[in-house]
């Protein structure tokens, strides 16, 4: 009986746990926003993003176009269709205490690898849109 218990304990130790385990998913909060000077104000649901951007850029309108949470499988690819006709693709490669290593490809803008800690906001300008800028923000939220 003691041997069985040991095997069970070993299995529990070696078994999948946490986001880094095989087959695990990385939830990412995705926010697609439109930044402009149209005078329509800031969407309250993007207050955190506004706090970050306002320190760097001058604008008076921040409109949320899409807000969702996507579960990305490790090594899988998630696609976000952007309103300017482009697409952004994300692929989590690896996760450890330093964060999630993600490959990000925003069509017509940039391809990048980023090691993003849980809750860290990765904000990417995804090109022009209407009279302003399209901004994609990604926030891993797995703990």
């Amino acid at each position: 009986m003691r041997i069985v218990g040991a095997f069970v304990s070993l299995a529990l130790l070696l078994g999948p746990s946490g986001a880094g385990a095989e087959g695990a998913t990385i939830p990412v909060n995705v926010l697609v926003t439109y930044l402009s000077s149209e005078g329509t104000g800031v969407d309250p649901s993007a207050r955190r993003l506004d706090e970050k951007l306002r320190k760097q850029f001058r604008y008076d309108s921040l409109q949320v176009l899409e807000k969702r949470r996507i579960d990305l499988e490790m090594d899988g690819v998630g696609t976000i269709d952007l309103p300017n006709g482009r697409a952004a693709r994300l692929s989590p490669i690896h996760e450890d205490e330093a964060g999630v290593l993600m490959a990000v490809d925003v069509e017509g803008a940039a391809k990048m690898d980023a090691r993003v800690q849980n809750g860290h906001l990765l904000v990417i300008r995804a090109g022009s849109y209407k009279e302003g800028d399209l901004v994609l923000s990604l926030e891993p939220d797995y703990r």
């Binding site: 951007l53 760097q56 990048m112 690898d113 860290h120 906001l121």
Partner: peptide, 23 residues
Amino acid sequence: VRWIDSGNRSVMVLDDQPDTTII
């Protein structure tokens, strides 16, 4: 940001805020 390729476009990476990176 560990690696980035923006083609021939210029990029600003703003990472002076601890919990945010703006590209």
